[in-house]
């Protein structure tokens, strides 16, 4: 299977991860029904269902080599084979005491990063023979989200107490910032060009930082840039488009909003009458389409 483009989105009730192979684009979703489903993205035909026993799916990602789907659930991260029709996982990562809330991969597939409600972010060595780069980063509150800087060496961790931690994986140096007191950080995103970082919280606010440095020995500097009152209610996810021109935020107020990164003004509100919580969103590789995961349904939205 040759995969030509990938973009991911996850959410508990309905989540998506989209990837394409040579002749089709597949959307992967997981949620509260203990299954992971693979959809043909342009027709919405369900192609496969894999079983995710014991718990809901909190987060999904696809390995850089497009061979495996990683699903984070309660106490486990399970890997499913993308190319076969095996409904059971092939690898099971365990030893975490609580829910794993976020999962992602270093771009060469050397290691995997996760964040969990056990107040820690972890680096898992994917080369199982020598577990030399197992790392753990403890914080004081349950971790809601983890995000890897495009330089592949700094991990941003957002926790329930509202603290954002910038963890330098090479030096173990870390930095904290609190954009808003007592507001749980729900999601953090960085654009692929490494120029912006966005974080959304449970009050529906979205904070934007511009990033400098981050190359070679120079540490990344965060410069506060914007605060958007993005949603009336709890925000759930934020994501930059692959071309870095757009930012989408999704929320419990049953909308998704698209913002221009040039001035962070609202470009479009994606709303549907029958729509419920918008759990997640994903861009197509050319930033022309957004897929949103809504409770019970998926919607297609054209920008």
């Amino acid at each position: 299977m040759v995969v030509s483009d990938l973009f991911s989105c996850n959410s508990p009730s309905m989540s998506g991860d989209v990837q394409g192979n040579s002749d089709q684009v597949i959307l992967v979703t997981g949620g509260y029904d203990h299954t992971i489903k693979l959809w043909q993205a342009h027709t919405g035909v369900c192609q496969r269902t894999a079983q995710h026993t014991d718990s809901q799916v909190n987060a999904l990602d696809i390995t850089p080599d497009k061979q495996l789907i990683a699903a984070a659930g309660y106490q486990h991260i399970r890997m499913y084979d993308l190319s076969s029709s095996n409904p059971n996982p092939v690898i099971n990562y365990e030893g975490v005491s609580k829910n794993v809330t976020g999962v992602g991969f270093q771009e060469e597939g050397k290691w995997m990063y996760t964040g969990g409600e056990d107040c820690s972010a972890r680096i898992w060595d994917l080369r199982s023979r020598n577990l030399q780069c197992q790392r753990i980063f403890q914080v004081s509150a349950p971790v809601n989200c983890v995000c890897l800087h495009p330089n592949q060496a700094e991990l941003v961790v957002g926790d329930q107490s509202g603290v954002i931690h910038l963890w330098d994986l090479k030096t173990d140096h870390n930095e904290q910032l609190i954009p808003e007191a007592e507001a749980s950080i729900q999601d953090i995103a960085m654009d692929p060009e490494g120029s912006y970082m966005a974080a959304v919280n449970n009050r529906g606010h979205c904070y934007i930082w511009s990033l400098t440095g981050g190359v070679a020995e120079e540490p990344t500097k965060l410069n506060p840039k914007h605060k958007i009152e993005a949603h009336q209610r709890c925000a759930l996810k934020c994501k930059f488009s692959p071309d870095s021109t757009l930012l989408v935020t999704t929320s419990a107020d049953q909308t998704a909003r698209v913002w221009k990164t040039s001035d962070f003004t609202l470009l479009q509100e994606l709303k549907h009458e029958a729509q419920r919580w918008v759990w997640d969103a994903a861009f197509s590789a050319d930033s022309q389409y957004i897929l949103t995961g809504v409770s019970c349904t998926t919607l297609f939205v054209v920008i």
Partner: peptide, 9 residues
């Protein structure tokens, strides 16, 4: 299924 347990190195 291959099981990988978290190990602190």
């Amino acid at each position: 299924i291959k099981h990988v347990k978290w190990e602190w190195n």
